[in-house]
Design a protein around this nucleic acid. Sequence first.
DNA 1: TCGTCAAGACTTGTATCCTAGTTTTTATCC
DNA 2: GGATAAAAACTAGGATACAAGTCTTGACGA
Lengths: 233, 233
Amino acid sequence: MAKTAALPADKRVTVDEIADYLYREITSLRLLPGTRISETDIAMRFGVSRQPVRDAFRRLETMDLILVRAKKATEVRKFSIRAIEKSRFVRAAVEAAALRQAAAMCDAAGGFQLDACIALQRKALAEKDFAGFAGLDYDFHKTICEIGKVPYAFDVIRSEKEKVDRLCILGLSKEDRMPQLVADHEAIATAVKAGDAERAVTAGMAHLGRLDDTIAAILVQSAAFFEDLDPPS
Amino acid sequence: MAKTAALPADKRVTVDEIADYLYREITSLRLLPGTRISETDIAMRFGVSRQPVRDAFRRLETMDLILVRAKKATEVRKFSIRAIEKSRFVRAAVEAAALRQAAAMCDAAGGFQLDACIALQRKALAEKDFAGFAGLDYDFHKTICEIGKVPYAFDVIRSEKEKVDRLCILGLSKEDRMPQLVADHEAIATAVKAGDAERAVTAGMAHLGRLDDTIAAILVQSAAFFEDLDPPS
DNA sequence: TCGTCAAGACTTGTATCCTAGTTTTTATCC
DNA sequence: GGATAAAAACTAGGATACAAGTCTTGACGA
């Protein structure tokens, strides 16, 4: 009866390759907002026809990463202030809920996991491993969600975080902010381990708040990358 | 100079028509989970080629509404328990945050808006206008977000609500639940108007909780529509 | 009657052509 | 030289043809 081969994660096709490639290029800011990209151009570069590129464009369009207009050049979407506010709000709401859950449910094993996260972060800080720290940052927030038994919360946090991280590449290097971020994480971990939900949420919100200044600075510095910012007339 | 024509809402093309049509069909459950849909079939029905249908499929695929597998029939995605849990969690988190904002910022004008919402709901209840009530339900939650000056929060609430509403069509009619829902809304509105954030959140969470029983009932009744529910062997 | 297997009718993936609109370039006129 | 208009190059939308799998169905044999 063949059993449909136990759903082996559908064969990867060209469209996946291209969509993933463009996703990485855009979210890593190697493709700047406003950059024009052409189906034909990408197709030639990959040595395929326009068709799979079109499909990839449609996917990215749904993710609001590119702007496709009939008969006009497709371009990488600019940042939207409203989208950033929304992202920040959602992330704050979800992160607060996850922290409350984590504080309520954290046991010895969870505390150990958090300690391990913090230790790795301290190590990265000491070694000035800025690139590695980004991954550890994700791991920390993921661990919080896992301790709170709300793994899906991390899906949301990551997806919102990616949107803002793209922005922050424009700002100052992480070098200056890293010590503060590690200290924040320590405060959060301590509160969670103590089961003090309110303190954990307060610390978490303070942590998120660090982004606000960074974003405000980028907004004036890179106004050309924002779409809902009227040029001064 | 030219000012890029003030982004005049791009021309609507065939792909939008088809994607919207399929979106409505799926979210309204006229197309049941597991139903197979074919590019060719839809194309013939719309009198167009496969191309725009294909583009629409890609859009819906990104929204997780359909499952496209190479060389195999495309089908309407089944419900996922994990997706429902995620949706419920996100909505609870965002709704709680919006209620806190609303309670903190509600003024006389906001109170008046809430009263107007409630009055319309009472009217719909008295007239047994179940269809109309659905719209009023959305309006109420939208008003909360507007009072809290977090309009983007409603984008999230609506999108999560749509996912679950699709499910609830499978359950009992709204007829039985309507009085309870209106009472919930009244409790929420009263707390918001009084500026009592914690009471508003408590009432809001109780309101959301009504869904849990409904969903649990649907889960056993319509197990065939769920994808991550192993059939009893 | 049941199992096996092969043919054919599906499915989506990819390539290519044409069309209609936009943008840029170039030529022309003042 | 600068403004204007024609023309060429470029854009994505749509239609069609073919390729490469998958599924169904029915014939055939045990």
